[in-house]
C-alpha cells in the first residue's frame, strides 16, 4: 500500500447520482478542494465542527468521532473521509454510502486525489484546471544548490516532530529541504538531545490546535544551544494535506532561498 489515494467505492446507488449530490465531508482538509472544484453550498450538507469552508452545512461532530446518526440522517450520496485510523473500513461498510478516502501523504498524491475526486463528482474539467493551477505553483519553486536540513515540530509538550510519513515531510522535500527525521511514522516523540545532535539548519515549529501555546524554541531551556534558524508556521496552513500544502511549499522554498 503506497498511500495512493483510492476512491473506495463500496456501494453504488444509481439513483440520484446524476443530479445534485448530497456530500458529507468528514476530513476538513478536503473541503477547500471541493470548493475549488466548484462544489456548491447546496451539495455539501455535512461537515466536521471546525470546518469553515461550508458554513451552511450541518456540523456532524469531530473528524475522529463523527456522529453517525447525524451523518445517516443527512442521507448522503458521498462521504469524504480521512485515514483508516480516523475512519475505519468497518465503519465505512456500515454506512451504505459511497465513501471516498482522502488520505494523501505527498503533494503528488494530492494531485492524484483531486483528479479522482473530479472523476467521482463528475467535475473532471474543474479537477484538471485545479491540478494545472497547483502544478504552476509548484513550478515556481526554485531549486536550491543543496537540500537544507530541517526538523519540523508538531508539538512542544511533549516534544513531537514530523516523521517520514507526514505530509510535512514531502512539503519540506519539494521546497528544497531535507527532513532529518527519517523514522517511518507520522509523529515521533523525540529527545531534545537528538535535535541538538542532528543540528538542523532550520527548525520549524507549528502553532495551532496541536501546539496551542508553545514557548518559542530558543526560549526553552533545553534548546538554549540550538543553532538553527527558527521558523514559526500556522498548523492549519501548513500541515494539512490540502491546497494549502502547495502554497506552504512555495513559501518554505522562498524562506530557504532567503537564508543565504
Amino acid at each position: 500500500m503506497r498511500g495512493i489515494c483510492l476512491g473506495l467505492i463500496l456501494f453504488w446507488f444509481l439513483s440520484g447520482s446524476a443530479s445534485a449530490l448530497r456530500i458529507v465531508v468528514l476530513y476538513p482538509a478536503a473541503s477547500p478542494v471541493l470548493r475549488a472544484l466548484g462544489v456548491s453550498d447546496r451539495e455539501v450538507v455535512g461537515v466536521t465542527r471546525y470546518d469553515r469552508t461550508y458554513p451552511g452545512a450541518v456540523r456532524v461532530g469531530s473528524h475522529l468521532r463523527p456522529n453517525l446518526e447525524l451523518v445517516r440522517a443527512l442521507d448522503p450520496d458521498l462521504l469524504i473521509v480521512g485515514s483508516r485510523r480516523a475512519f475505519p473500513e468497518a465503519l465505512a461498510r456500515k454506512l451504505s454510502t459511497r465513501v471516498f478516502r482522502y488520505d494523501p501523504r505527498t503533494l503528488q498524491e494530492i494531485l492524484v486525489c483531486i483528479r479522482n475526486l473530479g472523476e467521482v463528482l463528475g467535475r473532471r474539467q474543474a479537477a484538471e484546471d485545479l491540478v494545472e493551477i497547483l502544478s504552476t505553483l509548484l513550478s515556481r519553486i526554485k531549486p536550491l544548490p543543496r537540500p537544507v536540513t530541517v526538523i519540523y515540530e508538531v508539538s512542544a509538550t511533549p516534544l513531537k516532530v514530523a516523521g517520514a510519513r507526514s505530509i510535512v515531510n514531502d512539503i519540506i522535500r519539494v521546497a528544497g529541504g531535507r527532513n532529518l527525521i527519517t523514522v517511518p511514522r507520522k509523529h515521533i516523540l523525540l529527545s531534545p538531545e537528538k535535535v541538538l545532535a542532528l543540528d538542523p539548519e532550520v527548525y520549524i515549529y507549528q502553532v495551532g490546535p496541536m501546539n496551542r501555546h508553545p514557548t518559542p524554541p530558543k526560549k526553552r531551556p533545553y534548546f538554549r544551544s540550538l543553532r538553527s534558524r527558527v521558523l514559526r508556521v500556522e498548523e492549519l496552513e501548513f500541515a494539512r494535506p490540502g491546497l494549502n500544502a502547495f502554497t506552504a511549499a512555495l513559501e518554505l522554498n522562498r524562506f530557504l532561498l532567503s537564508l543565504k
Binding site: H63, A156, K160, H187, G208, P209, M210, N211, R212
Partner: peptide
C-alpha cells in the same frame, strides 16, 4: 474529548 486536537499535550 472536547479538545481533540490538543490530545497529545
Amino acid at each position: 474529548f472536547l479538545a481533540e486536537d490538543s490530545l497529545a499535550s
